[in-house]
Design a protein around this nucleic acid. Sequence first.
DNA 1: ATCCATGCAAAGTGTTTGCAGGTGG
DNA 2: CCACCTGCAAACACTTTGCATGGAT
Lengths: 149, 149
Amino acid sequence: MDIGGEELRARVERFTDGLKGSGIKLTHQRVEIFREVARTGDHPDAETIYKRVRKRIPTISLDTVYRTLWLLNDMGILTTIGMQRGNVRFDANIDSHHHFVCTRCGRISDFTKREFDELEVPREVSDMGEVASTHVQFRGLCNRCRGNN
Amino acid sequence: MDIGGEELRARVERFTDGLKGSGIKLTHQRVEIFREVARTGDHPDAETIYKRVRKRIPTISLDTVYRTLWLLNDMGILTTIGMQRGNVRFDANIDSHHHFVCTRCGRISDFTKREFDELEVPREVSDMGEVASTHVQFRGLCNRCRGNN
DNA sequence: ATCCATGCAAAGTGTTTGCAGGTGG
DNA sequence: CCACCTGCAAACACTTTGCATGGAT
């Protein structure tokens, strides 16, 4: 589920490069927060990221975590899952991908499938507005929850 | 966008029938709250439903709205959209359907497409757990927001 | 008459903001 | 050095809960 060291390094580098010459500063906190989100394939909420980063920077505050996550989101380096505001989950995987959501424990897993990225947009939908992206979500019970019945 | 009187009556009746002999009581408030959710094709949050129902029952309280919505959800009469808890939207359309979400204003529109209900579940996903339902979400700018640029 | 549901107010969550002091470029 | 960041604490928005009263069957 977690990401290999190689890919992680590449992601962190893409991030630090993105900051150069933008007026946005590269701080210890920001790097650690980004690294933490980029590292895992799960989709932590702000509180979870806060707890994890605190192991490395015990003095960090929760609001810095929030501010940084939204900053990264605005930079296009990570994405949010769910409705806007309120109980958001963050996702460092910005390649087009889809989700399996466990309806019991809320766990969200990624998968990719080129075919799903290119579903034909029905006429009814193109009449509603301009479609920018497509997301397929499968819902059901994950293996762990199926076991704990 | 709104639902015809015929279909609305049928939905309300399905609801009142569902309550008979269940120990759950059929109150004025519950009927009005359900009618309000069932009436529209948009996906209101609790606060919005509260405001609308208050026109008919000025003394109703917000917590009753919340309690009733979760009750209806538990009864399987309506569904929630979004992550669990926190900023949930309610949806009286329990037939299988899909969504177009405006990334600017958050408006969610339904559409149906049989073909999308039956997307093949990739091996990778069936290894994660047991898929119970499939939801396609198109994201982009709705016509209204595209106009207000 | 008996439960169940309602309204009120107060408590909980999760998230955002203003400000003074600190830090990166 | 100066703009930008951080941590703190307080404010906020949204949702849930405990309790006494009121209502449906």
